[in-house]
Design a protein around this nucleic acid. Sequence first.
DNA 1: CATATTGTACTATATGAATTAATACACTTA
DNA 2: TAAGTGTATTAATTCATATAGTACAATATG
Lengths: 129, 129
Amino acid sequence: MLQLDLRSRQPIYEQLIEKIKELIITEVWRTDDQLPSVRALAQQLTINPNTIQKAYRELEREGFIYTVKGRGNFVAPIDITMHREKLAKIQEEIARLLAEAMYLGMTKEKLMHLVHQAAEQTGGEQQND
Amino acid sequence: MLQLDLRSRQPIYEQLIEKIKELIITEVWRTDDQLPSVRALAQQLTINPNTIQKAYRELEREGFIYTVKGRGNFVAPIDITMHREKLAKIQEEIARLLAEAMYLGMTKEKLMHLVHQAAEQTGGEQQND
DNA sequence: CATATTGTACTATATGAATTAATACACTTA
DNA sequence: TAAGTGTATTAATTCATATAGTACAATATG
């Protein structure tokens, strides 16, 4: 769990953010589940605690987790209203990648299939809280 | 044309790559059209020629443009076979963003609509050379 | 209360990427 | 020959990333 590539050009804290988001989105980690402590995860991954904290801070800023001093970090309940700007950015990025994919020969049907897969992966139903 | 944000955390050369890709994908710039020269574009955007060259080199590596020494850079004809690995990476990234978008409340229907829009934007028809 | 565990803050340092600057060279065109 | 192209190289600067070390505050547990 949480496999990182320390030699990647992509910063470690960004890899962490992506992996943890994925665990939350796919509901492997559920609302109010406790995340590994900053120090424990740092030791396990043999990286600096500051790097873990940087990832956790960003995840909290984006609303994926919440923090209680002295207790730890926990998976946050989904708050859709919080993510309006974030959603707009994601939509732009998706649009850009879709256009590039089609330019490079990917079919509309294949892209539709990706949407179906994503829908299944996230449970399908809309979570309104 | 080619608006950049010099204060962005995103490197200038990456912004350039994205903008130029967009112009090519949307067919504003067409096959064999000549791109601005390294020096001219550098002067116009008031950035260093090396930065332009870095962007052009990457665009050539990805097969979007081709270079002729002494003449200039030109929009490349599409070579689908060249982009197999690239397509796989784009597909992964799209899948990741689709999952995150749905987790944050975007509907399957809205994502389908994005695919339709992308199809129209790129001309719709499949270009097989 | 004492202790361990949690998150947080801060300073200092090292490394690498991004960017600029300046120069030089090779090829093409007129 | 001259001007315009891409290319290569070196040096210097700036900034983000990451580590190391230390300290402090809040919480839980005995």
